[in-house]
Design a protein around this nucleic acid. Structure first.
Lengths: 209, 209
DNA sequence: TTGGCAATCGCATGATAATGTGATTAATCA
DNA sequence: TGATTAATCACATTATCATGCGATTGCCAA
């Protein structure tokens, strides 16, 4: 009945501290503590952990690679990163590797425990700034160039980037298709592109797919 | 000093209820309440709202389109969707339209208030099941489709993704434009897409921009 | 030898996008 | 008041994309 959790964290104080926090109540039990990725990977299998907390900066293999491997081996396991790192690269690599949660280490202890429960109950707990970065990944980047677009042009850009056809955009905005074309022209001029694909591909030229 | 919030919600009880919740403490004030998108759009400008709560299922124009328009007009405004809808389409359309939060209507009142504060303080509050869907959007089943492309098809794919036109690709590869078209067809077939837009968004229907 | 596949190419057609050119109206600012 | 800009719209044309259908040649495996 209690949530079975494992901790992979090299700093002993942190590891033991979190384990102690878990055991305070009776809805979490700490089934294992590992100081490095390699031993976790070796021994995690038979433990039937529901949830693992993974530090990223481990000695030897990184926590992200560990997450990827554990997820591949035990697809239903829930992984939450617990880390100091707030950079985009590690955040998104972790999510892609299979992490369902991402909590920064400065999170208060009660929040950490409630995050584990939230994860177990179908949520994806993230520290606030992480969640903001994740959500912003869905939004078209606001570059300085975009600040020279008019309001209407920004609306057009948004719909263009979502793949709507001119006719569809016209219907949605209650204007004629020629109006859409006029706005698209201005957007392309201001953003120095010549086609929708160039717009979507900005920054991708000379890079592999 | 207090967070200035506006509510766009057609059901009066809900609208007034949330406004009353906001005014209970002294760190939130409700600067406006609107029952439909059109009047919100008309009058939101001068209100200097920090945060708007937007229902999706409004009479007339949808809350998602409203979010897009408000974001285009006031890029720094923070938008949180407050809705019964949990379907992928609306979730991701909302995020792409500029929403930074997405809370389901069955959320307890205290959580709703804390979510607004979290949003204002740089987070992206989401109901747990929503957050899970958002995170899972980064976790595509590793698509081995690309492994069934021939070497030539992979070259074509790369150039397509970089936004080059067929003619440009033909010149680059020293083949005719019809050859490019032939390869493109095969690429689209194998990757189960019907257009370059779909290709560029592949597996990204609900994916980051 | 035959069949399958990859690479190449062509013609035709319809849909959509992009471009050229022009115009009107309203709002704002010097 | 005049100039500028934004939003809107139109007509015309060209360019590009996507699809249907067909073909040839070379290579490789059964």
């Amino acid at each position: 009945m209690p949530i079975r959790a494992a901790i992979i964290e090299d700093v002993e104080t942190v590891r033991e501290g979190i384990a102690a926090l878990m055991e305070r109540g009776n809805d979490l039990i700490c089934v294992a503590k590992f100081a490095d990725a390699e031993s976790a990977l070796q021994r995690i299998g038979p433990l039937n952990a529901d949830v693992i907390l993974v530090d990223i900066g481990l000695p030897g293999q990184s926590g992200i690679d560990l997450a990827r491997q554990v997820k591949a081996r035990i697809p239903e396991i829930l992984i939450m990163m617990l880390t100091v790192y707030e950079d985009d690269e590690r955040i998104f690599e972790s999510l892609k590797a299979g992490a369902s949660g991402y909590i920064l280490k400065d999170t208060p202890p009660e929040r950490l425990i409630s995050a584990i429960k939230e994860l177990y109950n179908g949520g994806s707990p993230m520290s606030p700034s992480i969640a903001r970065k994740v959500v912003e990944a869905f939004q078209s980047p606001s570059s300085d160039e975009q600040s020279e677009l008019t309001e209407r042009e920004r609306e057009i850009l948004s719909l263009l980037c979502q793949g709507y056809r001119y006719r569809e955009i016209a219907e949605r905005l209650f204007v004629s298709i020629d109006t859409v074309r006029a706005h698209v022209r201005h957007v392309y001029e201001k953003l120095h592109v010549n086609s929708r694909y160039e717009l979507l591909s900005r920054g991708r030229r000379n890079k592999p797919a």
